[in-house]
Design a protein around this nucleic acid. Structure first.
Lengths: 233, 233
DNA sequence: AAAAAAATATCGAGCGTTCGCTATATTTTT
DNA sequence: AAAAATATAGCGAACGCTCGATATTTTTTT
């Protein structure tokens, strides 16, 4: 069994390798119908640039307000060139969500699979989620703020993503309650509120940055709060 | 001193009168330079329709994606008619924020002014904020989701709004710590997290509606969680 | 290994459409 | 009839998107 007491953001960064290139290669190989580029070396490199530029501009001024001409300038390509990678502007959110979903799923399951104790599992889940959102902040922000604008299928993809995370916390709390380690609480409610705390980190990032609160500080505080409720009460 | 134990959403609705007409009359009287309508009876009525329509469409598809032609159709007026009430599309967020800020400030201060006990004061602040956000859900959603897109002055107005609320909670927690009623906690952190919980109510409203969680249920749960942390630990 | 040919990737001007906005005409109210 | 409010037609600009031309890379031939 793992010892999770010493997990920090620094350790997370050393341990968890999520290369944007790797994920973009997967997307490149999957989306052969929309991506008209053959050479993976070229395609992946540009895909990375497109996603980074789209996230940057969308988070600054909103996806709708971002024009494709701006996106071209930011990612260093032309209108025509861009359209070798997407079929329409609405393709972008799908590509971006694809990328995030793959990483989130991979990292969460990898880090939780061999921790059995509910309290340790809960702490690890909270830390991993916070650390990953710190590392992929633009993606988390985008996924939260822009989802409501998109087509039904992208919206559903995003919602299932959200429920996936929430279910993880529900399950842990439920197990902890059953085994008597946690107090008898409502798992659905509890998971909701834990999630709200985790989201506050990436939605109000500027606030915590201004106050010089590190992600480790925040993680410690959330965990102490959750434990205060689940164990003391 | 008030007894706050029995405060419910129903009681809030009976007690707290926030008429959209009244607020729009105030806006109408203040914005004489931008609003070119003379007759208050006509002007206020249309102003209400414009605000309601703008909130509805913005929350559905985003402020940027909402065209003024759609807004005209939804509010039952023509392009020319609309421009008797606004100088530009960017006027709308300012008017909407104006309206919300007035109500929020009024309701919060009115309901908190004569409660001294920190625990009661905290509970009342949580309930009032939740109940008000339930009643003015489109406004709260709009204020949260669209702020980042707007001009500097509207953005600052919105941020000062946010800090105003946060300061209320900070102050209460601080007082409670000093007087020994609450455990020794970090007021800034604690206020942040309480705020995150309150925001979750109006940001994820569909989720709680699906689960048939009423705003009273949610308020009870938040308060029990906060008390669990502030008093038990 | 150099040259020619083919395949791949990039470019940017320009398409039709819709945007925010306004000048002018018309209707309604006083 | 004067004033106030509304409706309409249309402006220039910017939008998403396309397409023929061009540059670059890879493959084939000599």
């Amino acid at each position: 069994m793992h010892s999770v007491g010493s997990m920090t953001y620094e350790a997370f960064n050393r341990q968890v390798m999520v290369s944007l290139e790797d994920i973009c290669l997967e997307i490149f190989n999957d989306d052969t119908s929309t991506i008209k580029i053959k050479n993976p070396k070229i395609g992946v490199k540009k895909l990375v640039k497109i996603i980074e530029a789209a996230l940057k501009l969308s988070n600054e001024k909103g996806f709708h307000a971002m024009s494709l001409r701006e996106l071209c300038q930011e990612s260093g390509m032309s209108m025509g060139g861009l359209y070798a990678y997407i079929e329409s502007k609405d393709d972008l959110p799908r590509i971006i969500h694809d990328q995030g979903r793959r990483i989130l799923g991979k990292v969460m399951s990898e880090n939780l699979e061999d921790i059995r104790d509910p309290a340790q599992r809960l702490e690890m889940a909270i830390r991993i989620h916070l650390y990953l959102s710190e590392r992929m902040l633009p993606w988390f922000y985008f996924a939260y703020m822009e989802t409501r604008f998109f087509s039904t299928d992208v919206k559903q993809m995003s919602m299932s993503n959200e429920l996936y995370t929430e279910k993880i916390f529900e399950k842990i709390v439920e197990d902890g309650c059953k085994s008597g380690i946690f107090a008898q609480v409502e798992p659905v409610f509890t998971a909701s509120i834990i999630k709200a705390m985790l989201q506050d980190w990436y939605l109000k990032h500027w606030k915590y940055k201004n106050r010089k609160v590190s992600v480790d500080d925040y993680a410690d505080f959330v965990i102490s709060w959750v434990n205060g409720f689940l164990i003391a009460s």
